[in-house]
Design a protein around this nucleic acid. Structure first.
Length: 574
RNA sequence: GCCCACGUAGCUCAGUCGGAUAGAGCAGCGGCUUCCUAAGCCGUUGGUCGCAGGUUCGAGUCCUGCCGUGGGCACCA
């Protein structure tokens, strides 16, 4: 299913092979020496360059330029296919610079058009099963801006894995038992009781230095203060009247809250084009006894002991400075235990590449899970943990501390409302996951008008517009355009940019860094805009117009394919 | 105290496996529209790549130390 096409990677492979062939003929070159090829920053340095000669100085004990000259000479003598490589030169301290032949660029362009919507896809994953676990927020409240980064990052990483040939499952892991949910139920119950009896006494809970929230008396001290709790209570009141007044059991309140909140979460995710394949309830790991199997399995390996009524995991024997509790004195497991059991199910379900998307607060805890899995004989190399740094919210020049419970958060919905779906996604994707994301809410609305995402979409819309115009004036796209006519600097530069796309996708997938795609698309848009400024389509001779139209179409393909990976729309008009 | 990430232009950030003259957007300044979308284009100002050592042909990139920012170091999730 691999898309056989000419692109930068194909060319690299070709030149690399030629280099290896030549290097074998030079005395003193180590057997396992691998020449590296990269795209120089400066276009004057050609299209591809290798530093092989520089690296070989230490083995050959000769000046790098001399080595480079020798390699270049032998490369020319091979000879290199002139329809692929136009020239090879020695430059600078001893670099070898390669220039691509224009025939090759024409061939690349033709291949992009043939590949169409599949251009950029590859088969590195060979159809193996991959799972990306993301969002995984417990249903205690609406998704916040912080969850947004997780959701968009995870979803895009899943897209990237899909593009490089994995069969991807998107999973949301959650816990609807536990203390958090009890507090949630109690919060709803208190609000409900206040509706039943408006004379119920109230108290004030401090949420900030100068901010207080008034709540009904039975409200838990650490209860959830968001208005959505009141909405849920009101819904219960409308459905049941006063019937729940004397119900001490929190279950009906908890269940109602969970249902409403999950619907809300799904709706928010759907707005961002995110659709999970499955929701995994932590509770199933209790019901089927998996968590206890983990304890026993670890015990058999000698990594479990009892102390002070709790069950401990001997992490101190696995490189950590202290041991870790698996089961509390109360008999309740800590979250690590189900986490371990959960990851075992990922292996049992046959996933060969397992990706977890976590916020920076998990940095110290996931290693415990990996340690346990390793002890139990699972191949932890299959697990990749993507840690993204937190989103710092700034409002009115002040950083906002995000807490779902405190209701001092900004919801993801509010953000989407303010800046739109596309900008929201792009915003979370345009920066490296391991850098802090500063988010100035006051700026967001204004900035959204000038957001770089519009630049990409604008380039796409502009191409669509040209195509509409071409059709109007009766200019038809040719099935066999004369692509070798594309010799203008702006044209060749654009083709060279387009040919990088598959590699960019693969690198972004390998490193789990979607921002590489975002940055790349901007470069494509820049290259296209230069082409647009210098080369007209309509009004030129028919053959040239058709060749340029083909280039425009290829650009449009890269932009729309790239935007699709990022989950951002590619509008035909703006 | 220990662990992780980060520190690059006024601001927000890129910077490929260690390569040639460190880039972009925004902000600032100056221009561009009888012509396929000006949400655009061109030019320009702006840098001790946190600091100090080290590794080597070569360091923003790797190593060590220090300083700073954020996150974490629970029988909370």
């Amino acid at each position: 299913m691999a898309v056989e096409e000419n692109c930068l990677q194909t060319m690299k492979a070709y030149i690399q092979e030629a280099l290896r062939q030549v290097l074998r003929t030079i005395d003193g070159v180590p057997e396992d020496f691998q020449p590296e090829l990269e795209k120089p920053n400066n276009p004057e340095h050609g299209d591809l360059a290798t530093n092989a000669a520089l690296q070989l100085t230490r083995y050959l004990k000769r000046p790098p330029r001399q080595i480079a000259e020798e390699i270049a000479e032998r490369l020319r003598a091979l000879p290199l296919d002139p329809r692929r490589v136009a020239s090879v030169e020695v430059a600078g301290p001893g670099f070898l610079n390669f220039r691509l032949a224009s025939d090759y660029l024409a061939q690349v362009l033709a291949d992009i058009l043939t590949a169409g919507e599949r251009y950029g896809r590859s088969d590195l994953g060979q159809g193996r099963a991959a799972m990306v676990e993301y969002v995984s927020a417990n249903p205690t409240g609406p998704l916040t801006v912080g969850h947004g980064r997780n959701a968009v990052l995870g979803d895009t990483i899943a897209n990237l894995l899909d593009w490089i040939g994995y069969r991807v499952t998107r999973e949301y892991y959650y816990n609807d038992a536990g203390r958090q949910m009890r507090v949630l139920g109690a919060s709803v119950r208190a609000r409900y009781l206040a509706l039943v009896d408006p004379t119920l006494p109230t108290k004030k809970i401090q949420v900030a230095e100068d901010a207080w929230v008034e709540v009904p008396e039975p409200f838990p001290e650490d209860g959830y203060l968001g208005d959505y709790i009141i909405d849920i209570a009101r819904m219960l009141y409308e459905q049941h009247g006063e019937a729940l007044r004397d119900v001490e059991d929190l279950t009906p309140f908890k269940e109602a809250a969970e249902k409403v909140i999950f619907e809300d979460i799904r709706r928010t995710l759907a707005r961002l084009g995110i659709r999970m394949d499955s929701f995994f309830n932590e509770h199933t790991l209790y019901e089927n006894g998996k968590i206890w199997e983990v304890v026993e399995a670890l015990r058999e390996k000698g990594y479990v002991y009892e102390k002070d009524g709790a069950v401990w995991f001997r992490t101190s024997a696995l490189g950590k400075d202290q041991d870790t509790v698996l089961v509390k004195r109360t008999g309740e497991p800590t979250y690590r235990l189900p986490d371990i059991a959960y990851h075992i199910t990922k292996f049992e379900r046959g996933f060969e590449r397992i990706v977890d998307i976590f916020g920076a607060d998990h940095i110290a805890t996931y290693p415990d899970v990996l340690r346990a899995l390793e002890v139990l004989g699972y191949d932890v190399k299959k697990i990749d943990v993507v840690i993204y740094q937190f989103v710092t919210l700034v409002r009115g020049g002040e950083p906002v501390k995000m807490s779902t419970r405190r209701a001092t958060y900004v919801t993801l919905d509010e953000l989407i409302e303010e800046v739109g779906e596309d900008v929201t996604r792009f915003f979370f994707l345009m920066r490296s996951p391991n850098t802090h994301l500063e988010f100035d809410l006051d700026l967001a609305r204004e900035a959204s008008e000038k957001n770089p995402v519009f630049y990409l979409q604008y380039a796409h819309a502009r191409i669509c517009s040209i195509m509409r115009k071409a059709e109007e004036v009766g200019l038809r796209e040719s099935p066999n355009p004369e692509l070798t006519l594309l010799q203008h600097e702006a044209e060749t530069a654009l083709i060279k940019e387009l040919m990088r796309f598959p590699e960019v996708i693969q690198e972004a997938a390998r490193t789990y860094e979607p921002h590489r795609v975002a940055n790349y698309l901007r470069e494509v848009a820049v290259a296209f805009t230069k082409f647009y400024e210098h080369c007209r389509i309509i009004g030129e001779s028919e053959v040239l117009a058709q060749a340029r139209l083909a280039l425009a179409r290829a650009t449009r393909l890269v932009l729309s394919n790239g935007l699709r990976v990022l989950g951002i729309s590619a509008p035909e008009r703006m």
